[in-house]
Amino acid sequence: MKTLTKAEEQIMQILWNLKEGVVKDVVERFEEPRPAYTTVATVLKVLENKEFVSCRKIGNTNLFSPAISKKEYARNRFSLFLQDYFGGSFPKLATFFAKENNLSMEELEEMMRITEKELKKDNEKE
């Protein structure tokens, strides 16, 4: 999967929230100062070419929607991050996170409980 530029990711975040929209809808979701309409339209076309966004014509208007889910993109980005910075080792990532955030033993144990609970939920769904 290709990676997104910062501008592309901003637009994808908006589209994931909107579910679908026209260029004007996307522009209106930006904080001031908003990017130009033509800039957003260009980035949406790039996203369509990268197959992150699908577009359907309704009259003279293009309606854009995400072609991949936010979860799918996040999973891919996290996998790349884990591989690039921690050699694919989640324990190394967790250790780094714990050290950088000066987590207490209680906080680490709470993370483990939450993780176990989430994994059990996921296993029950399968």
Rank of each mutant, 00 (worst) to 15 (best):
E8Y: 06
N123D: 06
L18G: 04
S65Y: 15
F52I: 05
F52P: 05
Q83H: 07
N102V: 09
V43C: 07
Q10I: 00
L47C: 05
L15T: 04
K70R: 13
D122L: 14
A7D: 09
G87L: 09
I114Y: 13
P35H: 03
K121C: 05
E116S: 13
E107Y: 05
K92F: 13
Q83T: 08
L108F: 03
E20I: 10
C55W: 06
L15Y: 02
Q83N: 08
V27S: 10
K117W: 15
N123A: 13
V53A: 09
N62R: 15
F78V: 09
T5V: 12
F97V: 14
L80C: 11
E110N: 07
K71A: 14
V43H: 11
G21F: 03
V27R: 06
Q10K: 10
V53P: 10
R56L: 08
L82Y: 07
S65R: 10
P66K: 02
C55P: 09
S69I: 12
T42E: 14
E100Q: 15
S69E: 13
E28R: 03
A7H: 07
L119K: 09
S89L: 03
L119Y: 13
N49E: 10
I14M: 09
L63T: 03
F96G: 01
Q13G: 08
G87F: 07
P91K: 01
E31M: 11
L18C: 01
F90L: 12
V40Y: 03
L103V: 10
L119C: 11
A98H: 06
L103E: 02
D84Q: 09
A98G: 00
L4Q: 03
T39P: 02
F86G: 00
M12V: 05
R75I: 15
R56G: 02
R113Q: 06
L82E: 05
E8K: 02
A41V: 08
I68W: 12
S89V: 03
F96T: 09
N76M: 11
R29L: 08
L44E: 05
S65P: 07
R34L: 00
N101G: 01
E20L: 13
I114G: 01
R77G: 04
R29M: 14
E106W: 07
